[in-house]
Amino acid sequence: MLNANHLKKSFDGLGVLRDISLQVNEGEVVAIIGKSGSGKSTLLRCLNNLEQVDGGTIEIDGQALVKDGVYCPAREQRAICLKMGYVFQNFNLFPHMNVLRNLTEAQVCVLKRDKEKAAAYARELLKKVGLADREAAYPYQLSGGQQQRVAIARALALDPEILCFDEPTSALDPLLTQEVLGVIRALSKEKRTMIVVTHEMNFAREVADRVVFMEEGVIVAEGAPQEVFDSEKVKAFTGLGD
């Protein structure tokens, strides 16, 4: 489903991604963990074309977004990236649109869906994230957890094949974190393909089919949660060493 090979990326000469390769299969939930500054968020941003890599290949569903460091034309980039959904750490809902409009805007202007159909689909998704009664609210009227659930619904509205989360609960307090993790957990039960960059170790252990541990721009451990969390390096990171 997603094939990334030999990705390289540096900011001002500092290597942030140093020869990263990552495969994600259909229906798989991959959790990426690691210290701040290990490059995990940059990796996710590169996969979603929010940053451009300096070298390497990214193929999504067999289509190359970038091949050996050369990007396809902008129009194709947008089409390929539509297969990816992205949920931000800070939600980034559109503050001037109500909840429903946040969900329908891209359906209508990007996918050219009929307005009525877009709204119906949006309502269905809001129900799924438990916010059916808040469609008329503006983002500032919602709690952080509610905003993040709307953001998840907004990403789902475009029917992405892979849903990506960039530290989706880092801006939330523990209680709100649980309601967001609950939604992600439910999605994983539907066998949705997901990549989750997270600091929530227990959550990664519980939901992920595969855990990727990054350090200084390289993947140092990768595999089933149990085996990754048991490796020495990861134990040192999670503080569960001794």
């Binding site: 959904g85 809902l93 559109f94």
Partner: peptide
């Protein structure tokens, strides 16, 4: 905020759509 433009981008909007639909009102 940059995040607004990025949100438009990951939703597949063009630069023009991002300007007219997201940035302008803000």
């Amino acid at each position: 905020p940059v995040g607004q433009i990025e949100a438009g981008k990951v939703l597949g909007m063009t630069k023009g759509q991002i300007f007219w639909r997201i940035k302008l009102m803000q």
